[in-house]
Write a protein that binds this DNA or RNA. Structure first.
Length: 958
RNA sequence: GCAGGAAUACCCGAGCGGUCAAAGGGGGUGGACUCAAGAUCCUCUGGCGUAGGCCUACAAGGGUUCGAAUCCCUUUUCCUGCACCA
């Protein structure tokens, strides 16, 4: 690893020389941002990856000569730390344990964590420190917190703007809610019921003596097939007064209802048994239905009142059948005669099913009784089928021929318009339990403010924004398209948490995903804010800076010179070139990013590109701080040094893929990096005197094939790595710039081992090595900045390598025939070894024959034809009269048919001299004398006929 | 359920019509070096083979093509998101 002292030294040098403070100038700019962190805990290695990627890119672009802006801020708005502070306050052992042992917060600091703002301040500073220790090239002058008053002015401006454009609305909204905490809850607040959705049920009012038995249903269209109501006589029911109506519902259903309806009062208990046997009126058909007892009715679900459609609901049908068999119960409620007349009614036609589809489902799933577990599946199946394919039949009057979905929508409207029904929200699954242990309910929040992402014109702008963006990886584009279409109105106001107040209604806070959509614009002027009174930041000011909207000078309180400077700076950096964020933010943050930019800014300021991150794993398992399955970045730095961590994180997966932190592989990377530094020492030794790297930035001119080969490889690696980095492919870039580069060098050393005493040859090699070293240091700077800075300094590099030019790539040096030549030598050596292994003899002498000229010609002909068309190859060859022996041509042409597709033809190569040149190496490898022939003057077994271009023939003498 | 994506050798992963028995890393094997361990370097890591070859392979099945891990269809399995958590 790079010594931590050395890393710190360079970090100091960078900061002191203001290397990463970027201001507008004449150069071309690149502006890259990554999602600012929500600092509610310490930074772990997953965060390390997230912030290293933009740093690598920023460093790369800086070396290419761009003026690069890479800023950072802290997203401290939101509710989580409020909850954390509360839990710390009440000494919750689980929370205290995590903060003490996982986040390593000292006791004295922990005491202050009862203040949520202190928590984000504490971890904001910790992030800043760790980011500095990681060597990130951030312009810290632009650092801010989202609670800074200046930023809040910016957010207020943004929201007023959106509201004036008619893109903010007000309405009702159902949420998961904890009655104990009196707060909406998110998935992370739950002990149980994560990811459970909220369904919308229709309430149907069945009149009974001036009261209503109110049933909840997903399928109001089945009202036409209703035969009776179900109550559970074992449960408690109550009468409530709601507005002017009296409803009868289960007692357990009250909690949910009371959070969704206004003006509710409990009037008293109702004995369900007394209702059994009475008749209620169907609000849609006017038909009277009897109330019957059923044990399957769950008093907590819906209203605890169910209307029965035995024709289409398997549960109702089986319950009815059970009841008919239950003489005891029938006796008890005096239902014996009344029940006889109740028969299922089919009202929805379904292909391949009979008159009573519910019966078919009972049979299909073999449901035995109303508490049978298979019942749920039967219900789901028929629901899906009828929803998708069902058609209303003649018993449904006006709705005859309607598709189920359409009939349902119309019936809901009809019921609501005539006050015959209502809406109730309910969890799709239960239980949903808050961390405090309380059962959650669905609550309707009123006066909820929305961002109207459903607005068609706004969507259109977002689509256009997307269309002109670079998306990495490109496959994610389809997701964006989908999400932009799918997004509905987004509740953007909250009661709880830290944040900016809604400017027109200060009872509400702006929700955190909504206050972080265009803040990249704010970075461009953030460095000016120290000298500005936030109260002077009015809308006219922001309009002028960000939108070039001029207003009369009197309304802007900032000096016109300064205002202009900020406007120019914004116009210089914007549009944003790259936005980096996590994969799970595609459907919200990143999409909002496009929505808001496209609404507020003119087209030339719309964002240009997005890079999406994958997740982090630890030894194959998901990282999770709550489960303690996590490695803190600071600990990792102390163990390995930040260069190793950067190199590991960038090489183990591409940014958008999941990476896996494996201790074993991190150690492997550490060794590899050591090799890199060791290489520098080796070069120094071979070179023999002080290296002045500035004199070797360009490739030396060389004679030996192996030197030429090495220089070709280096330039190829430069090209590949550069292209990879342009597309944020850090892993591929490192494959080329590091792993394959190292392999090439290994090969070089291996190949020249035998000539280490040859002074003349080694002099040339030394030149090559010093050139290699200079290239390699520069290629590695974005990944391993500290170590490279140190090497650059040691070998007389001018200035800081962090701002030295990226290595140049010389296309003309990537000579395919040079590369092919080395491939031939290597391939020959492998072939010899393979034959040795197969024939199992100790060779005395190995004879090598290169292909005669006519074979090369034939190869060229075949290459020109392009297809393995033997006939055509033959014809052309004979016409050109390349060889006398037609039989040999035929034989060889056949061989070519097979071989030509297997190798890349790069033209004629002087194999003879290449092999001659490599005899020492080859005989060392084969452990035998090697003789190379351009004519087969000695060939007792006629092996020379096997010779092919790029594949010399071999004869091994035992 | 809806939407998007993925399936490659012991593991992670590259490859996206011929140069593929398939890059690179990890792990394993044998060897060099060493008193030894470690580190480092080299070899091998589907099967068979007394001449560089052959056979079987890239989830399964089918198809297009002179030729498919790569293109098309079907099936199976897995992952991610689905709204108020940033």
């Amino acid at each position: 690893m790079t010594d931590i002292k050395i890393e710190e030294k360079w970090q100091r040098v960078w900061q002191e020389s203001n290397l990463f403070q970027s201001d507008p100038n004449n150069k071309k700019k690149v502006y890259v941002t990554v999602a600012y962190p929500y600092p509610s805990g310490a930074m772990h290695v997953g965060h390390g990856r997230t912030y290293t990627v933009p740093d690598v890119y920023a460093r790369f672009k800086r070396m290419q000569g761009y003026n690069v802006l890479f800023p950072m801020g802290w997203h401290v708005t939101g509710a989580p730390v409020v909850g954390i502070a509360k839990r710390i306050q009440r000494q919750d052992p689980w929370t205290i344990d995590i903060y003490k042992n996982i986040h390593k917060v000292p006791e004295s600091e922990l005491a202050k964590f009862t203040d949520p703002e202190y928590i984000v301040k504490y971890f904001g500073e910790e992030y800043h420190n760790v980011m500095t220790r990681m060597g990130y090239s951030i312009d810290w002058r632009r650092e801010f917190k989202t609670l800074d008053p200046h930023y809040q002015k910016f957010i207020e401006w943004q929201f007023r703007k959106l509201k004036n454009m008619g893109l903010v609305g007000i309405g009702e909204h159902p949420v998961k809610y904890c009655p104990e905490d009196q707060n909406p809850v998110g998935d992370h607040d739950l002990l149980e019921g994560e990811g459970v959705g909220i369904n919308e049920l229709t309430l149907i009012k069945f009149e009974l003596d001036g009261n209503y038995l109110v049933a909840a249903t997903f399928r109001p269209e089945t009202l036409f097939g209703a035969t009776n109501l179900w109550l559970n006589p074992d449960e408690d029911y109550i009468k409530i007064k709601i507005d002017d109506e009296k409803w009868i519902i289960a007692k357990d259903a009250y909690d949910n209802l009371t959070n969704q309806k206004k003006n509710i009062e409990i009037e008293g208990d109702v004995d369900a048994s007394e209702l059994v046997g009475k008749y209620v009126k169907n609000p849609l058909t006017g038909i009277e239905h009897i109330v019957l007892p059923a044990s399957f009715v769950d008093p907590e679900y819906g209203t605890g009142v169910v209307y029965s459609v035995p024709g289409h609901a398997p549960a109702d049908l089986i319950a009815l059948q059970d009841l008919k068999k239950n003489d005891e119960l029938l006796e008890k409620f005096g239902l014996v005669e009344k029940i006889e007349t109740i028969q299922p009614v089919g009202i929805i036609k379904l292909k391949d099913y009979g008159e009573i589809p519910a019966q078919d489902m009972l049979d299909k799933f073999d449901v035995k009784h109303q508490n049978d577990p298979n019942l749920k599946e039967a219900t789901n199946e028929i629901y899906k089928l009828e929803h998708a394919k069902g058609v209303m039949d003649e018993k449904t009057g006006d709705y005859k021929g309607y598709k189920v979905v359409d009939a349902r929508d119309e019936i809901i409207q009809l019921l609501l318009n005539n006050k015959l029904g209502d809406i109730l929200f309910e969890f799709a699954e239960r239980p949903v339990i808050c961390r405090c242990g309380t059962k959650c309910v669905v609550k309707i929040l009123e006066d909820q403010w929305f961002l109207k992402y459903s607005d068609e014109e706004w969507k259109e702008l977002a689509y256009q924004c997307l269309e002109n963006m670079n998306i990495i990886p490109e496959e994610i584009r389809a997701n964006f398209n989908y999400y932009i279409g799918w997004l509905q109105d987004w509740a953007c106001s909250r009661r709880i948490g830290l944040g900016t107040k809604l400017p027109w209604n200060t009872d509400w806070l702006i929700e955190p995903l909504s206050d972080s959509t265009i803040y990249m614009a704010y970075y461009t002027i953030a460095k000016y804010m120290n000298s500005i009174d936030p109260e002077d930041l009015n809308d006219e000011f922001f309009d002028e800076v960000f939108l070039d909207i001029k207003s009369d000078n009197s309304s802007i309180k900032i000096g016109s010179e300064l205002t202009k400077q900020m406007r120019d700076e914004f116009n210089y950096w914007y549009p944003l070139d790259w936005r980096l964020s996590a994969k799970d933010l595609v459907g919200n943050h990143l999409s909002f990013h496009m929505f808001h930019h496209s609404a507020i800014f003119p087209r030339d300021k719309w964002p240009q590109g997005i890079v999406v991150f994958g997740m982090g794993l630890l030894e194959g398992n998901k990282m999770s701080s709550s489960k303690g399955n996590i490695i803190m970045l600071e600990d990792a730095i102390n163990t390995y040094g930040s260069d190793v961590i950067r190199l590991f994180l960038m090489s183990s997966a591409e940014p958008w893929q999941d990476f896996d932190w494996r201790e074993n592989e991190v150690r492997g990377i550490s060794k590899r990096m050591e090799w890199f530094f060791e290489f520098a020492r080796r070069v120094e030794k071979i070179y023999g005197s002080q290296i002045l790297i500035m004199d070797h930035l360009n490739p030396p001119s060389v004679e030996q094939p192996i030197s030429k080969w090495m220089i070709a490889q280096v330039n190829m690696r430069i090209k590949e790595a550069t292209e990879a980095l342009e597309g944020f492919q850090t892993r591929k870039a490192l494959q080329d710039a590091f792993f394959l580069f190292k392999k090439d060098i290994d090969h070089l050393f291996y190949r020249i081992e035998h000539q280490s005493e040859d002074e003349e040859a080694m002099k040339e090699i030394a030149e090559v090595l010093v050139y290699l070293l200079g290239v390699w240091i520069r290629l590695m700077v974005p990944f391993v900045p500290h170590g490279c800075e140190e090497l650059w300094n040691r070998f007389g590099g001018e200035g800081l390598v962090s701002v030295t030019a990226w290595p140049e790539y010389f296309a003309e040096l990537v000579d395919e025939s040079v590369q092919k030549g080395e491939e031939i030598v290597h391939g020959l050596s492998q072939d010899i070894n393979e034959i040795k292994k197969v024939i199992n003899i100790k060779p005395q002498k190995i004879h090598v024959y290169v292909a005669p000229e006519w074979k090369w010609k034939l190869f060229e002909i075949a290459d020109g034809i392009g297809k393995p068309d033997i006939g055509k190859i033959m014809q052309t060859a004979i016409k050109q009269n390349i060889h006398d022996n037609k039989k040999e041509i035929a034989e060889f042409a056949k061989k070519i048919g097979k071989e030509m597709t297997k190798m890349k033809y790069v033209g004629i190569i002087d194999e003879y001299s290449i092999l001659k040149d490599s005899i020492e190496f080859l005989s060392g490898e084969a452990d035998a004398e090697i003789v190379v022939y351009d004519e087969p003057s000695y060939d007792p077994e006629n092996k020379s006929r096997n010779a092919m271009p790029y594949k010399p023939a071999i004869y091994i003498e035992g």
